[in-house]
């Protein structure tokens, strides 16, 4: 027991494996006391939520993969998938300064999405990514406006 205690004082690196000795304490949900036995199946969900929170607080969600150069880079996005990947790929590919853009989800059980961008001279892959994100936002703005317009027009035609 004293050994386990001494271990506990060492700072545990985020994301590193937890020692087996520590598993019982660290894996218990913190608020076990005020939950009765008759709870929903939430123990797991609680744990999951806490993990995700840590990730969002500490870990950067976009990372430039090594081996990248200014005009040809790969990015790794955490907690993103096809929802963002495919739309982003499309909008970046629309940029005439971009030579190539593709995305991949290397493994389905890892919440990671990779984007490869290669640009022509004169711009960088990071700029192309930033421009892509902004363009997609603008596209969203336009579609929102169009949808609200259409909704109002529909309401006007049905009520009159």
């Amino acid at each position: 027991m004293p050994r386990a205690k001494a271990k506990k004082e060492e700072p545990v690196e985020a994301g590193s494996d937890v020692d087996m000795e520590e598993a019982p304490t660290s894996h218990q949900p913190e608020n076990t006391d005020d939950m009765s036995v008759d709870q929903d199946d939430n123990d797991e969900e609680e744990g999951f939520e806490e993990d995700e929170e840590d990730e969002e607080d500490d870990v950067q969600r976009v990372r430039l993969l090594p081996g990248s150069t200014p005009t040809a880079a790969s990015f790794e996005f955490l907690n993103e998938g096809h929802t963002l990947g495919n739309a982003l790929r499309y909008i970046i590919m629309k940029n005439p300064d971009v030579e190539f853009c593709a995305y991949a989800i290397p493994h389905p059980s890892e919440a990671k999405m990779n984007v490869r961008i290669q640009t022509f001279e004169g711009t960088t892959a990071i700029q192309a990514l930033q421009k892509g994100l902004q363009d997609l936002q603008e596209l969203c703005d336009i579609v929102t406006d169009k949808f609200i317009d259409a909704r109002e027009r529909y309401a006007a035609t049905t009520s009159s």
């Binding site: 976009v62 996005f77 993103e80």
Partner: peptide, 15 residues
């Protein structure tokens, strides 16, 4: 659409 935009805004901010 707002959720997509929030996603994008978060990434733009981080970049």
């Amino acid at each position: 659409i707002k959720v997509i935009q929030q996603k994008l805004a978060g990434l733009i901010h981080e970049l």
